[in-house]
């Protein structure tokens, strides 16, 4: 395994070491592809966007500031490519206004606003799932129901486990917006997950 950091590999690739690029792709393959599968909801599309993302990395390698971290850059480019893909697909998120209210449970309603309490939700546990592929399918369906901006920030946070400040920096949006958007994203996802667990869907 190459002991060099991502940033050092980019630097090496820029100076003509083509193997460094393969190392970068292999190193981030699993996480990035999963991120894209979750974001696009389509494995074939994730494959395409994955390739487009690394092509963009190749094209922009010279402009990459090696004093910054590579992984957030990679995921931001991937998110942009996925957004372009979804736009090309003409996909538009729809909300079911009435559905979440008073059906999924796992929270309380105050003044017309639903509050989610994770302690009242059976969170998906990998080892407890009888069927991993079925769990994947349910998670994906819950994600697919999220509006894209929420899904995007949820996935960026989950896959990168970054601080709000880092996310705000990477996405170029105010820290307060990151925070409120991620809170909303987690709440919406948890509720949809809960709804899917109850079989209260589709």
């Amino acid at each position: 395994m190459d002991p060099r950091t991502d940033e050092q590999l980019v630097e090496a690739y820029r100076t003509g070491e083509s193997d460094a690029f393969r190392t970068l792709i292999e190193r981030h393959h699993d996480d990035l592809l999963r991120f894209l599968i979750r974001l696009t909801g389509d494995r074939a599309a994730a494959d395409d966007v994955f390739q487009e993302t690394f092509l963009q990395i190749h094209l922009s390698a010279d402009s990459f500031d090696v004093d910054r971290r590579f992984r957030p850059w990679l995921f931001t480019i991937a998110a942009n490519k996925a957004r372009d893909y979804l736009r090309r697909k003409g996909r538009r998120q729809e909300m079911e206004l009435s559905a979440p209210v008073g059906r999924a449970g796992g929270g309380e309603e105050r003044g017309g606003v639903q509050f989610v309490d994770l302690m009242e939700i059976d969170v998906p546990a990998p080892d407890a799932a009888a069927d991993a592929s079925e769990r994947d399918r349910l998670v994906q369906r819950a994600l697919d129901d999220l509006p894209l901006p929420l899904r995007e920030i949820l996935l960026l946070a989950y896959f990168q486990r970054l601080s709000y400040a880092q996310i705000a920096d990477d996405l170029g949006i105010p820290l307060g917006t990151v925070k409120s958007r991620l809170h909303a994203a987690v709440a919406a996802f948890a509720r949809k997950w809960k709804a899917s667990q109850n079989g209260d869907d589709r």
């Binding site: 979750r38 994770l118 969170v123 998906p124 546990a125 994947d136 996935l155 896959f159 948890a190 997950w193």
Partner: peptide, 17 residues
């Protein structure tokens, strides 16, 4: 719980690397 949610999201079959 947050980590469990995140893990559920982050773990899916990545296919043939």
């Amino acid at each position: 719980r947050h980590r469990a949610l995140a893990d559920a999201v982050c773990h899916c079959d990545a296919g043939d690397r």
